[in-house]
Amino acid sequence: MTSVCFYFQVHQPFRLREYNFFQIGEEHNYEYEEKNAFLLNRIAEKCYLPTNRLLLKLIQKYKGRFKVCFSISGCAVEQFTSYRPDVLVSFQKLAKTKSVEFLAETYYHSLSFLFSQKEFVRQVNKHRDKIESLFGKKPQVFRNTELIYSNDLAKIVANLGFKGILCEGVDSLLHGRSPSVLYKAKNVENIKCLLKNYVLSDDIAFRFSDRSWSEFPLTAEKFAQWVAKQGNGTVNLFLDYETFGEHQSKETGIFAFLEKLPELLLQKENIDFKTPSELLHDLPVIDEYDVPKPISWADEERDLSAWLENKMQQEAIRRLYSMEAEVLKSHDEQLIETWGRLQTSDHFYYMSTKYQNDGKVHAYFSPYDSPFDAYINFMNVLSDFEQRLAAKVTLQV
């Protein structure tokens, strides 16, 4: 039996406004609210609402046999609440079908696991509580920011009570093994790993509308045949949700593809759809996935270089996390919230100086003219935040 697991990442960062040196100490509003609202409204109309309607239609049409899962960052949830509560309602309608699973992640879509276990745990608990309050069920499966994973992460996640975790299927770590079977984490008995099939996932996410691709156009019929050839186990299709309607526009045929695919797959006797929790329960563990150094689903390297390769990125994040003790000691909810939002991985992603294909992807997502502009803007904001924090600490003494 082959089970297809559709996982969608839903995330929108709080983008920063243009903040220059002369505003430090004078202006404490860092976020570009108008742009955040504009972009969320655009993506809601192009992606979230139409895709949620389509998924609901498919779940109802196939009487619950079609299933998907989501992780929705706390940043996205807060923007839905502020700007588009109808989007949140549409996700809640999906939750009521019992054919959709919601996963846990870091609340601010952060790199906290790499820099502070205490902060990582705080954010995971905050996110898990938020998801349970919105969708009525406590998440049992974890997905770290951008699928960042390592053996050390598995231990922490196990201690938090999760049963499984989503990971990138990295060829150099699989050593010829298939990403389509269930693995266990190294030296952690109660954490199972679901590995992304990056080839098939990226066929949809990145190559779907690429006319230079040898397999263009990608039809649902063709893709269903590829899935059927994967053999027994699970085909884990992990994608940014914005693939549908935003990164791949309606005009490319992406919605028609998504609507047709379940019919073609469910026609086959040996193919079904499952959520991560169902896979963890139903599939046997075949082998161990040993990941001594952190991996991710970003860029060709599938490592941390998307956020931490150059000195600008390294200095910005070092300085940010150096404030942790004083931020938490302040007991100032506004400062703690701002510090959390500044941890969002996108801020460091915009500072990447990669080139060629990876560089084009970074530039596509960045609101800045250059990585240097992203760095300067972030550091100006951080300088003002440091002054506010220092003033708070001084008052407490």
Rank of each mutant, 00 (worst) to 15 (best):
S209A: 15
P179V: 09
D303Y: 09
K354Q: 14
R319Q: 15
N380F: 05
E215F: 10
D240P: 04
Y289L: 03
Q334V: 11
A325M: 02
I204H: 08
S90C: 02
P262W: 14
W213D: 15
E278P: 04
L258I: 12
F120W: 08
W339H: 15
D129Y: 02
Y7P: 02
F244R: 04
K311F: 11
F206E: 09
Q356N: 11
Q334G: 02
V381Q: 04
K186M: 04
F208I: 06
L153G: 06
N380S: 07
L237I: 15
K93R: 13
E309F: 13
K46S: 13
G253C: 08
Y183F: 14
Y83R: 01
K138L: 12
F273S: 07
F102P: 05
D358C: 03
F70L: 05
T394R: 13
G245S: 07
I43K: 00
Q60T: 14
L266E: 15
Q92P: 03
Y62R: 03
K137V: 11
E78R: 02
L54R: 08
G64W: 09
Y349K: 08
M1Y: 08
P294N: 11
K186D: 08
L266V: 14
E326G: 00
F80M: 01
Q267Y: 12
G340N: 11
N20K: 13
P367M: 07
R211A: 07
T145C: 12
G136P: 09
V393W: 03
F21Q: 15
L195C: 07
N190C: 00
